[in-house]
């Protein structure tokens, strides 16, 4: 797909990848809105960056580790306290693999 022309079909595919359900209005608005944003960000193509290293973090910290020691942690009850469905000390989810 040519980036600056995201079609409704592309949008449907992306929403599936992202696990989102779009409303009808979003389905009709998003192709134009997202295409406009992509056209805008494509202004970066004016710059030659072949020899430029990418920056992912800015303060230069490296290899930050801490002692591998157990400490206080949340109880199972606390961890489960916001779950919609639970069973004893387990979260209940939909089956991923069918028999």
């Amino acid at each position: 797909m040519k980036s600056s022309k995201l079609t409704e079909k592309n949008i449907k595919h992306l929403s599936k990848l992202a696990g989102l359900k779009l409303t009808k209005a979003e389905l009709s608005k998003f192709p134009k809105q997202l295409s406009e944003i992509l056209t805008y960000v494509e202004s970066l193509n004016k710059l030659d960056t072949k020899k430029i290293e990418p920056t992912a973090q800015v303060t230069g910290l490296e290899n930050i580790t801490r002692e591998d020691k157990s400490g206080k942690s949340l109880t199972a009850d606390e961890v489960l306290s916001n779950a919609k469905k639970k069973d004893k000390n387990f979260f209940v989810t939909k089956a991923i693999l069918e028999k």
């Binding site: 989102l20 359900k21 997202l34 992509l38 916001n82």
Partner: peptide
Amino acid sequence: IRYGLGRKMFAGEAKRRIMLGTF
């Protein structure tokens, strides 16, 4: 699953940004 009401509750702007990032 662990907390929150799931992806169906995201509103427009979050969806727009998730879609852009996914692309």
